[in-house]
Computed example of a mutant assay.
Amino acid sequence: MEHTRRFERLWTAEDVSAYLGVPVKTLYQWKWRGEGPPVRKIGRHLRYDRAALQTWLDQEAAA
C-alpha cells in the first residue's frame, strides 16, 4: 500500500499577521530575535506551517 503525504499550503507572513493580529514587521522581528512561532525561510520569504503555528499558540497559552 502506497502512503501519500498530504501537503498543506504554507502560510505567508501576511496570513499569520492577520491570524494573530500582529503587524508583519513584528513577525520579521521575532524571526530575527529567534522568538515567535516556528518559521521557515524560503528564498527571502517567511513561511509558516499551520499545525506548528497552532502548537506554538497552545504552548504560549499554557505558559
Rank of each mutant, 00 (worst) to 15 (best):
V16N: 03
K25M: 02
K25R: 15
Q59F: 06
F7S: 15
L46H: 13
Q59K: 14
V24F: 01
D15F: 09
L46E: 10
R33A: 07
Q59M: 12
E8G: 06
A18H: 06
F7Y: 13
R44T: 08
R9A: 15
G36C: 02
G34H: 07
R47N: 01
A52I: 01
E60L: 08
Q54M: 12
A13R: 00
W32M: 10
R9Y: 09
G21A: 02
W11P: 01
T4C: 04
D58C: 06
H3Y: 01
L46S: 11
L57I: 12
A61R: 15
D49I: 03
E8S: 13
L10E: 08
E14L: 10
P23W: 01
E60A: 12
A61N: 06
R47K: 12
F7K: 12
M1K: 00
E35R: 10
R9Q: 15
D58V: 05
Y28R: 10
L27W: 06
L27H: 09
H3F: 01
G36I: 03
H3D: 04
A52D: 13
Q29T: 11
Q54K: 06
S17I: 07
V24I: 15
Y28M: 00
W30C: 03
T4G: 03
Q29W: 03
I42D: 13
I42Q: 12
T12N: 05
Y19I: 09
L27D: 04
L10Y: 12
Q29A: 07
V24L: 04
V39H: 06
V39I: 09
Y19T: 11
L27A: 02
D49G: 06
L46D: 04
K41Q: 13
Y48I: 02
A51Y: 08
G34C: 11
R40G: 00
L46M: 08
S17A: 15
W56I: 00
A62N: 07
Q54H: 13
L10H: 09
V16A: 05
P38G: 06
